[in-house]
């Protein structure tokens, strides 16, 4: 079922395509340019990250990255894309975090080395120090990916740098700023960009108990899995490359809340389970946490 907003947008699109000029008022409103004041300025910083989430954001299909950057956001700084660098870039970052460049949303990709501040530096400042300053000036934060939400792989068991996610970093310091948590290792580009679009056009999205947009993270992967039927019929893959439900190979779809099974990845081309690859739970807050929780169940050879 289409909601009222979607209907109005669609009606506006159809009317525009046919050159209708006498539009009912709500339809005309939906066609209006986005209010430039409502477009959030995004200061995108990377912590202990692999840039995988940034690279994933460049895989966005509809809208394209260009449209998202020029229409729905004002991307003040991004280490992978920005033309500037060095002291010019540092000046830009500092003006934002010191509150001299107006309201902004801080986007963080990557974990924070809580016990070893020099394990993540931006220019001459530690990430931890930058975040503490920014906490006073930002409107809100978006934690992108497993690392920024929960520590991810850097924060997994064996973690030498004390890597943690942004919510924990804030709670340790009693900082009360809203943090939208978008999990996944990496994130799906839609999860992030459509959250930004939501912020621009509607406002704060409804969040789940773990602080993630309800729109994408309310159901388990298993619930809408195309192989759910196999599961019900007890048709299980016994080894790699088999068709059937992947549960016996270790699939974590039942424990992982995300909409991969209906959204698919890479412009809807494919996704893990379509490639007969068990879900490794990368959108779960517990992703890769413990050494004794392997991703797969495979045979062990004696000797």
């Amino acid at each position: 079922m289409m909601n009222r907003r979607q209907f109005l947008t669609m009606a506006a699109g159809i009317s525009a395509a046919f050159g209708v000029t006498n539009l009912p008022e709500p339809v005309a409103a939906a066609l209006k340019q986005i209010d430039p004041q409502a477009i959030p300025k995004l200061l995108y910083l990377q912590g202990q990250s692999c840039s995988g989430c940034s690279i994933s954001l460049l895989q966005a299909q509809s809208p394209s990255p260009l449209t998202l950057i020029t229409r729905y956001s004002q991307l003040a700084f991004h280490a992978d894309l920005s033309a500037t660098s060095g002291s010019q870039a540092m000046n830009l970052i500092e003006r934002f975090i010191n509150g001299e460049a107006g309201p902004y949303i801080l986007v963080l990709e990557g974990a924070i080395p809580e016990k070893m501040p020099s394990a993540c530096m931006i220019g001459d400042k530690s990430l931890a120090r930058i975040l503490e300053t920014a906490a006073r000036t930002m409107d809100a934060a978006v934690a992108i990916g497993a690392c920024a939400c929960d520590g991810g792989i850097p924060g997994a068991e064996g973690n030498l740098s004390g890597a943690i996610g942004l919510p924990e970093f804030f709670s340790q310091r009693k900082i009360e700023k809203p943090v939208i948590q978008i999990r996944g290792c990496s994130v799906h580009p839609d999860w992030v960009w459509q959250t930004v679009v939501h912020l621009v056009k509607i406002g704060m999205p409804k969040l789940t108990a773990t602080g993630s947009p309800h729109l994408f993270f309310s159901h388990s992967i298993h619930e809408t899995c195309p192989r759910y039927h196999d599961f019900q019929q007890e048709i299980f893959a016994a080894k790699l490359g088999d068709r059937g439900c992947l549960f016996q190979l270790g699939c974590l779809g039942p424990q992982t809340k995300a909409d991969c099974s209906s959204r698919w990845w890479n412009s809807g081309q494919t996704w893990c389970i379509d490639a007969s690859a068990p879900c490794i739970g990368c959108a779960s807050p517990l992703f890769a946490r413990q050494k004794n929780m392997p991703f797969y169940r495979m045979k062990k050879k004696k000797g």
Partner: peptide
Amino acid sequence: AIFGGKFPHATG
């Protein structure tokens, strides 16, 4: 990704 399952970070 057709054979890797997804990009980035292939599971296949």
